[in-house]
Design a protein around this nucleic acid. Structure first.
Lengths: 230, 230, 230, 230
DNA sequence: TATGAATGAGGCTTCATTCAT
DNA sequence: AATGAATGAAGCCTCATTCAT
């Protein structure tokens, strides 16, 4: 009753191709969303861009909303991964590492970061993807716990100001969020010729803000995050 | 041949009612937008909420987009006004006044602030309101000019770090922008029991960030902005 | 119980002004219809152009359709009047006079003629103006009767071909109708540099067509209609 | 790697059905337009009549206007084809053939002809179908060129009156145009019991008008066009 | 009496989703 | 399994007509 090894291979192969196609759909959806804006992208366009039929898209995703949600989750996973590495480094004695990692991850592709923020706002409260939303929040809660532990230690050491720990990471989050918006804002962004330099400036604020002052002038130059060119 | 005072009064009365109705439409549109999200609000719903017919809405606004644009402009005018007052105070010797005014204006009604940011993103590049967009940008450019002058002086005095002036106000802008998002973000915001306190914390960062360190510990307590309860 | 002469005068004066305003509304409606096309003219535009309120327009006409119908009737009355004079001249011994009059009346302002044809098509079958439509048809039937009598005589005299009399005037009507369309048709009309000359050519065909041949070469030059420049 | 013949057949079959559905939409639109008048026909009604969803109509046509334009172009193509055949016969020695063909084509289905004329007026100047309009005009210009050549020869032979060639075909066009209107005009048309006979009379005028007299009495009886019953 | 703000039916169009092939 | 034609709900907007002032 068991399939022959040959048949199993075929099935495995098939699944692989199926998943790679799913990747392609997501990737193309992403590029369309960034290029044309959230409101302008249709399922038809995604299918066309991905070189598959509309029906095929619906074999992979139950609804359009699921595609968007997937993008948000993918991104958050990436951020989380980077943040975790940063926290580890902080724990290992480099106080600014977590913030640095975080800013670097988010500001390295501002367009993508911005898109994801917009998507999250759009998906907020959508019952269709409630479960995925819960997954997102769970991921963040987990990060938050790690951050709280880490920050509490830094506060204990007198490195960070003694306010509720979440004030610190929320400020970071807010600054990153806002920096991305500034980067794209037509009124403000247009004035910034060296946008990357600005992002570096902001990132440094993020890394040092809320610390108790004594850290401020101690930031070794290697702490300055090195944002990749987008 | 001239109309009787009575008739003139009536006309004035009529115009007043017309304008007040316009206000009501905007106000109701605003509350719907905040409550249901940008994508969910239809012209029909706005009309229903405002207690007028759909056609009436179109007597006041050429298109739905114009309603949204109006909200954005109204808000920007308010921000500008507050910023101008702050800049005046700064020029009068209170270095943190401009930033304080700005944060207070933006963070006093975070829901509105957030909505307007989203609206601006949505309206970006919409040819229908190109002229209004230009008006918005002109308003901001004017603010930017005033800020550049002000910041240059603060840099000269050694109060602010010597980076391009726009780095300073853009950081402020970004932080405010992000703080608002943090305020509403389900993942992060839910943890903040005293949201106003958090906004105050962020505002203080905004007021002090980028200053050269010597100012930092000098902020008199009365400088702490006192955000009104939303 | 009878009003004073003074009061009667006032009423008469009032009525006169009322009627002159009605004229103005019709006139302005007409110019808008010719300028912008039937589908593009709104009651608002007519009111604005006439310098009165929309409500006032509805004091004069029950519906928009009535305005259009009025234009059609006015025009038909004018045509009828000209045709009657022409018939009289024909009866007085000038065989081509009726056709000449008719063509001259219709082709002297082709734009107006065309508009009215379009209006009539649009109003066809509209129950709202059924009575006015009947009036129009009655007017035409009366013309037709006169024409039938006239043509029968010309056939008797051997001047016109012996076909049912209405064939003759219908051909005239058709040619006029079509000439107007040709005048405005983008494809064909653009080629005609001297449009008036073309209309004259057509009119001459109209005047001579269906005659038995012997008339053809006898048309005195003074028969050639002299179309006024539009 | 190539598809099986079976699959190819299926695709061909599918395309065929797609096109036939397009035909049905056009056909039903046509009958509705003739029956109810241009202004009364909605896309919804067309879809309902064609037995498809509204969305399906928009799979075949970009806008409602395109449906109308298609009808106009289809018709013009048919007319052109007939005219071309007629011109060929004229060149082959039958002077009246072109006019005869033309009248026959246009008067064989007066209702359709009339609808198309109305549509063309309505579509005039509509930017949405500018390109299609240009196509229409190009088709006509080509016809006009052929006619000019043909008519010039007939004038040379003394068969037609020596006026600018376009006077001749424009008169034909105008007469056909008008005859169709006469056919349907309630006032005049109602009197014509044998409408087809009238159309034949008009067609004969069209075929002979503008000729130099000597042709007039020579028209052999077989020249009389034989209009098919609509 | 004149006005024009208010109305809402009704038209056009889009696009997420379904399903027969 | 893949496709894309078909669908129709839902949104935006227009404009003839009404009616309170």
């Amino acid at each position: 009753m068991s399939r022959s090894p040959d048949s199993t291979d075929k099935i495995r192969e098939k699944k692989k191709r199926f998943l790679s196609r799913e990747e392609r759909i997501i990737k193309k959806a992403l590029s369309l969303l960034v290029r044309d804006g959230i409101d302008k992208v249709t399922v038809s366009a995604i299918a066309r861009e991905a070189g598959v039929g509309k029906g095929t898209v619906y074999k992979h995703f139950l609804t359009k909303t699921e595609i968007l949600m997937r993008i948000v989750l993918n991104y958050e996973r990436n951020i989380t991964e980077n943040l975790r590495k940063g926290i580890e480094s902080t724990e290992a004695g480099d106080p600014g590492a977590a913030a640095r990692s975080y800013f670097q991850a988010r500001l390295s592709d501002p367009a993508l970061d911005r898109l994801v923020q917009q998507l999250e706002v759009k998906l907020q409260g959508n019952e269709e993807v409630e479960d995925k939303m819960l997954e997102l929040h769970a991921m963040r809660r987990s990060n938050i716990n790690a951050l709280n532990v880490m920050i509490a230690k830094l506060i204990d050491k007198g490195i960070l100001e003694d306010v509720p720990p979440h004030y610190h990471y929320l400020s970071c989050w807010a600054l990153a969020q806002g920096a991305v918006e500034a980067y794209f804002n037509v009124s403000y962004g247009a004035d910034v010729e060296d946008k990357e330099d600005f992002l570096r400036f902001v990132a440094n604020i993020g890394i040092t803000m809320g610390n108790s002052g004594q850290l401020r002038d101690d930031i070794p130059s290697q702490c300055l995050i090195n944002l990749p060119k987008p």
